[in-house]
Each structure stands twice: as structure tokens, then as C-alpha cells.
Design a protein around this nucleic acid. Structure first.
Lengths: 247, 247
DNA sequence: CGATACGTTGATCCATTTCAAGATTGGTGG
DNA sequence: CCACCAATCTTGAAATGGATCAACGTATCG
């Protein structure tokens, strides 16, 4: 699980799969990730409707799923290092949204042909990948619940708290401060509000001593207060499970 | 694919998997669904946090994923016949929300042990199941986009249009009218608004000649108008793909 | 040093919430 | 079959969060 042995996938292994994978499965996983490359800020990895023969694995940085229709842009979900960003393109082929980097990012690609091999020869690893896509859906569901029930400040608090928790789980963060290269306008596009209102919400969180967002960096000032505002209950991230092991 | 040969799973086969499954795979699928039973309205199938050794397959009726925390209830997603309602519990084990029936429903159960067997011996079928859970996530994403960008009437229009499209895809509907056993309060819980406001939105749709919701039955009066209000683009349902076939 | 993206602020308007009350419906027992 | 109850639906009025429009301040970078 060290970053030397598994330079590309160690965060995935750490964040999700823990210790239940064999050494062999871990190295199969590491070998799946190919064509590693460095991307700049705001680069589009895929666009809506495009057909692809490989899935994108995020090694470092942030990638978001973005909807762009008739001029308006929405950010549907945000990915942290160690995430498969579009694993669903394996089964779905077409992709239903754009994929773009926020800040510089390092990604690798997993060819669908190789995933076929995993499906037939490595059922346990396949199940771990399935776990990852189910976790993705669970994160979507939680976000639906928050968009339904919370106002903009609660949504922003949730976003901050969730990203922080996910970064921590993959050891991509140490303290209560982390780089997060979204502008206020993009935060608004994530929370389903307007840039103007998001500006006020950001200020409110700062004034209340909960969190400070400035220069594309988030500093958590009061984690408990934030979690309370977001009604955050991290069960849906499935991080403390002993791990989905089957006999 | 007939309802005689595959009495439990034919809607699943029709709606999602089409013709790319072998006769053998189809009957393996049919045999997976066991302990079929009829449930009454408002029955809870599972509750948040419970650990389960089997997943629920919806044969007839509606089941929703429901969040109930400190008195407030939210409806996260709605399932139609032919859906796996909690396939994610296979990989995740614990479930992050409640599952309850709306109206009477017939469900069957798929044991996780048997899914293990599918994973090892039927990789193609496993891939089809994975497809189903990815589709689920795509539906979540679309709902996120709608909650972010549309007001309550647009959300309701989307809900109606999506459910209609999904029911049509599994041949559970013929005309522009279908039973949908949610009260206005429950529609509000789905769209993230209040019962009072939902009442006004329902009336508005009726007055505009778009749709009529009464006595737990939805009649679509102007499908195009509804779709326009919802900015509906059914690509995310992946219904017209030739099918995810791999060489 | 000017261009351009980003952040900030004020004023007004509208969708939605909230509180409160009344009408309708469906189901149940007498 | 009617009376009654509980759930559901409906309506009004007042309060509010957020959208919108418009302007101005402030980084940042070639």
C-alpha cells in the first residue's frame, strides 16, 4: 500500500479497499492504470455523449463531472485522488456529462478491454471496483438529500466537510486546510445557487468562524460547527467498515 | 423475454439488457430471484444502517429509497418494476437509507452468496448487473442536476417524465396515464419542497394543461410541454443504445 | 499597465416557506 | 347506509431566502 510499491493506486487501496486485497490483486490493479499523464487546470478529459474505450483514474488533483447545456454550467460531482472518475463508462460506454480538471491533475487510464479481463479472471477485484461505483452512487444520494433539504450555506458546509473527509481517507491532507481550486462561481454551480449568493454564503461561513475560503484554499475553522450546519453523518462514505469481505 | 418464461425478471431483461444476453444467462438471472412475496402499501423492506445478506429485486409496483432523520422524511429515489432496489448492498453490506413500498408491490430477493457465484462464473451477467447499478447512479446525477437548476414545477415535471419513460421501457404502461401512489406530501418530499407549495405546483401543471395528478394517478396531458419544463433529455437513461456488448 | 477574470456590495423582485384554517376524501364501525 | 375520523388536499396572508440586475473593487498576468 505504500506509495513506492503502488505509485498510482495507493490512495485507492488505502481509501477504499484497505487490507482485504491480496498482493497479487493490488499489483493487477496498479498495472491496470496506464498512460499516466499530467493535466493543466480546466482541461476537459471527456465531453458529454462521447464514446470511450477506457476509464479515467484520478491519481492527484481534482476532477469534476460537469453539465454544460445552453450556456449554463453545473457541477454534478467532485472527485478526489484515488477515485475512478468515469468507471461507469465501462458498462455504459457513452458518458452523460463532461469531465474536467480543477487545478492541475495527474490521471491514468484503464482500458475497458483490461477491465473485461478483470471481470473474467479477478472476480474479487471486480467486486472491489463495483464497490467503488456503489460508493459513488451513495455519495450522489447524500448530495440529493442535502440539495433537497438544506439551504445554500448548509450545502456548502456539506461540500467542504465531505471533500475534507474524503481527502483525509486517502491521506491527501494533513491539517484542517487544503487546496481546493474552485472559484466562488464554481462553488455556486455545485450548490445550485448563484455566484452572488454564494459570495454571501462564503462570507457568512467566515464570519461565523466555521470555514475560510480564499485564494482557492479552504481552511476549516470549526469542524463540528460545519458538520452541524451540514447535518453531516459520514456513514454514507462507508469508511469505517471492516471491509466488504466475502467468505 | 416473455413473461411466461421469465415471470420475475422479464422487465429487467426488456428494460435494460435487451437481446445481448444468452438464454442461459437469462435463466440464471431468473433463478437468482427467490422468495418472491407480495407487500402492502408503506411497508419497510429495510431500514438505514441494517446489514443484509441479500438484495431486493422489484417485480411489480413502486419502491422508494427514503431518508428519515429527526422527524423529517425525504425521498431520494423511486424504483420501477425490473429495478434492483438495493443491489449496492451486495458490495456495501450496510445500507444508507430506508427502503419502502409505495402501493402494493411484489419483490424477490437475490442472495449475496449467489451473486458471488455470478461474479466468478458469469462475468458477462455480472457486467449487466454492474450496468444496472451504473444506470442508477446516472439517474441520481440527473436528479442532482435538476434539483440544482429547476424550480419545484420543473422538478415535478422531470419526475413525471422520468417515471413515465422508465415505466414505458419495461412495458409497465400503455398510454399517458399510470398509477403513481404518492401523496402530494410525498411528492414534496421527493422534490425537496413543502406540501403546501407542492399543492400549488400540482395545480399549476393541471391548469397549464401539462399533467393531472389526482387520486394517486398521473395523467400526462402534454408530454412535450412537460419535457420542455423539465428540460428533459433522456440520454442519461441509456435506453436507445444498441447495448453494451463487448467483443 | 491595461486586460480580464474574480470577488464584493446594494437594491429590487419573485419563488418558496411558514403559519393557520377550512374543505374533501376514503375508510371504519355502528 | 350513515356518521365519523383521520388523512389528504386546498386556500390565504405574511415573512423570507435567494435570484436578478447593475455597479464597483481587486487580484493576476502577459
Amino acid at each position: 500500500m505504500s506509495s513506492e510499491t503502488y505509485p498510482n493506486t495507493w490512495r485507492f487501496l488505502k481509501g477504499r479497499v484497505r487490507d482485504s486485497m491480496s498482493r497479487n490483486e493490488k499489483s493487477v490493479m496498479e498495472d491496470l492504470v496506464q498512460d499516466v499523464c499530467q493535466l493543466g487546470h480546466g482541461e476537459k478529459i471527456l465531453t458529454r455523449g462521447s464514446v470511450t474505450q477506457r476509464s479515467t483514474f484520478l491519481i492527484e488533483g481534482f476532477v469534476a463531472r460537469v453539465n454544460e447545456r445552453d450556456g449554463k454550467r453545473q457541477i454534478i460531482s467532485i472527485h478526489v485522488p484515488g477515485d475512478f472518475v468515469d468507471l461507469h463508462s465501462y458498462a455504459l460506454k457513452k458518458i452523460d456529462h463532461d469531465l474536467m480538471t480543477f487545478g492541475t491533475a495527474r490521471v491514468g487510464y484503464v482500458s475497458h478491454v483490461n477491465l473485461d479481463v478483470v471481470m473474467t479472471r479477478e472476480p474479487k477485484l471486480a467486486r472491489h471496483l463495483w464497490f467503488a461505483s456503489h460508493l459513488d452512487a451513495a455519495i450522489h444520494r447524500e448530495w440529493i438529500a442535502k440539495l433537497q433539504s438544506l439551504s445554500a450555506d448548509g450545502c456548502l458546509a456539506h461540500l467542504i466537510t465531505e471533500v475534507h473527509a474524503r481527502l483525509k481517507a486517502v491521506a491527501a491532507i494533513e491539517h484542517n486546510s487544503f487546496a481546493f481550486p474552485l472559484t466562488q462561481t464554481e462553488l455556486a454551480e455545485t450548490c445550485g445557487t448563484t455566484p452572488v449568493h454564494m459570495n454571501r454564503v462564503v462570507r457568512k461561513l467566515r464570519e461565523q468562524g466555521l470555514a475560510d475560503i480564499s485564494r482557492k484554499k479552504i481552511t476549516i475553522l470549526d469542524a463540528e460547527g460545519l458538520a452541524a450546519l451540514a447535518q453531516f453523518d459520514m456513514g454514507y462514505l462507508y469508511q469505517n467498515l471492516p471491509e466488504p469481505v466475502r467468505a
